[in-house]
Each structure stands twice: as structure tokens, then as C-alpha cells.
Design a protein around this nucleic acid. Structure first.
Length: 276
DNA sequence: ATGTATGTTGCCAA
DNA sequence: ATTGGCAACATACA
């Protein structure tokens, strides 16, 4: 259930396929939200990039494959037939056969993940129709612009606004909670009530947090997220609140509440509830 | 059996 | 016209 750092980790793993050619694409049982993958057969993978939580596979022939892992999508790479058979399971929906006996498998337990192949000329339209904010790592707005973005969501809880993809692209439910902790903000604090000083702390924390998470291959819980080697990410050891019971800073109990339908952890001492 | 899950989208209401 | 809340999507696990 990847957010920006997990997707970035996958993108880095996919680099080893750049320069290879797609020989075959096979779809398996229950594949949904997967469209037009046959178009890339015979094409060379030229580049893999990330935009928010979207994966962009640039192919020759001006084709681009846009993919989103949603909650449980995984891309895993096999370097020979034996490895391919080992990675293939009942959740494998797409098998991409590349040149040099390399294989890319798209596994997705819940089938929420998406894959579509479109001409590069339509990429702009593809994203424009989704009203997405700037990428939190690559295009983080300056503090003034960031403040505007947050205050525009004045009646939303800060934690909800932080992972609203129309505000910033790439943050998800885990990293939004971590940012609230870092700033000492109760996650329910309305955006309009967040002091500028705390907004400043959040703004300054975003890139370092994401970069450190990437450094540790992202956050894995329940083994659901893996990189292209099938390995879990180990950033979870650095999480302050998500999935925690006791605050690492002050030892106080970590509470879990539901906020806008999503599980939300916070330290009752470090993140005091707002007055009104 | 019930509730929960790192995400997005479509529908509906304010 | 916007914005926000919530169910839906499908599966596994506690």
C-alpha cells in the first residue's frame, strides 16, 4: 500500500529493465483496470519515472504505460525462468516477458491497481482530468504557496489535507500522520487553525522525511509492500506514530482514532488537541 | 462474524 | 461551480 517513497523505491528497482525489449505480455485471471498492454509488445523500455504515486513506463513508439499500485499492487522482477515461477502466484495479473530472459510481474491481491497504455501525447490529459497537486518531493512549493494550498482547505483536518492529492501529490495516510507528529499537531486540527510556525515545521520536514523513507526502501506493514526484488522496506522502524503504541519521544500512549474514515494515530501528549 | 487495510473515484448533498 | 463525506472496488487477515 505504497505512498511516494514506496513507489520511488519501485521505480529505482525498475531501472534495471531500461534498455530491454518487451517480447510478450500475458494477462491472467481477474485482471481489472488493465488496458491495452498488448500495444507495448515489441517496444523497448526507455525510461521509468514517478509522478506522485503513479509509475510512468516510457516505451519506444511514443507509448507510455501509466500504472498505479493503489493498495496492494506490486511489481517484481525475475532474472530467469526459475525465479519467474517462484514469483508467480494467484495474485499475478500481468506477466511482462522482456529480452535477456527477464520478467516483470504485476501482482495485486486486491485488484485495485491500474495499468493503461496510451500515446505520450495523451499523458497531459490523463493527469489533467484528475486535478493533482505538485509532487511532494520533486515539486514542493515554497512556503508561501504551501500555506495558500493548506489554507484553501480551511475546514479540513490538517492530516486529511496533507494527503489530499489535490494539495500535494504523493503523501498518503502514513506520512501525513508522521508530519502531524513532527509538528506537534493533533491530526484533527483544522487547517485554518494551524499556526504558521507549525506549518513551517511541516513544510521543512516533508522532503527529509520522504528522502529518509526512500533511503530505507519505504514502509512495509504486513508484508504487503515489496520492492522489485520482493524485499520489504524497513522504514517502519522510524515511524513515530503510525502503528505505534507508545510515543518514542515521551512514552505516552499513542491513540488511534478514525478521521474521515481513515485510521489515524497520534500521541496524546506531544499532539495536544486544539482548544475549540 | 466483524472490522480493518499505506488509494482513488464516482455519486450525492450542502 | 466547488467542496466534502462516504460507499464502492476485492481480498486477506486478526
Amino acid at each position: 500500500m505504497p505512498e511516494l517513497p514506496e513507489v520511488e523505491t519501485v521505480v529505482r528497482g525498475l531501472q534495471k529493465l531500461v534498455g530491454s525489449k518487451i517480447l510478450e505480455v500475458e494477462l491472467f485471471s481477474g485482471a481489472r483496470q488493465i488496458y491495452d498492454t498488448e500495444q507495448i509488445i515489441g517496444c523497448e523500455l526507455q525510461q521509468v519515472k514517478r509522478y506522485g504515486k503513479y509509475l510512468l513506463f516510457y516505451f519506444s513508439n511514443n507509448l507510455i504505460m501509466i500504472s498505479h499500485l493503489r493498495m496492494t499492487g506490486q511489481y517484481v522482477i525475475a532474472s530467469d525462468l526459475l525465479e519467474k515461477d517462484k514469483l508467480f502466484n494467484k495474485h499475478t495479473h500481468v506477466l511482462f516477458s522482456f529480452s535477456e530472459n527477464q520478467f516483470l510481474l504485476f501482482n495485486d491481491q486486491r485488484k485495485f491497481g491500474t495499468i493503461e497504455v496510451i500515446p505520450q501525447s495523451l499523458v497531459t490529459d490523463y493527469f489533467k482530468s484528475r486535478k493533482l497537486g505538485p509532487d511532494a518531493l520533486l515539486e514542493l512549493p515554497n512556503f508561501d504557496e504551501f500555506t495558500q494550498l493548506i489554507f484553501k482547505k480551511k475546514n479540513l483536518p490538517i492530516k486529511t489535507a496533507l494527503f489530499d492529492q489535490s494539495v500535494l501529490l504523493g503523501l498518503g495516510n502514513i506520512y501525513a500522520q508522521e508530519l502531524c507528529f513532527i509538528a506537534g499537531l493533533h491530526p484533527e486540527t483544522l487547517c485554518a487553525e494551524v499556526p504558521l510556525s507549525k506549518l513551517k515545521i511541516i513544510h521543512r520536514a516533508i522532503v527529509p522525511l520522504l528522502e529518509k523513507a526512500i533511503e530505507f526502501n519505504g514502509t512495509t506493514f504486513d508484508g504487503k509492500y515489496v520492492n522489485t526484488n520482493g524485499d520489504v522496506g524497513v522504514f517502519s522502524q522510524f515511524l513515530f506514530v503510525y502503528g505505534q503504541k507508545i510515543c518514542k519521544k515521551c512514552g505516552t500512549e499513542i491513540l488511534k482514532i478514525k478521521l474521515n474514515g481513515r485510521g489515524t494515530y497520534y500521541c496524546t501528549s506531544c499532539q495536544a488537541k486544539p482548544q475549540n
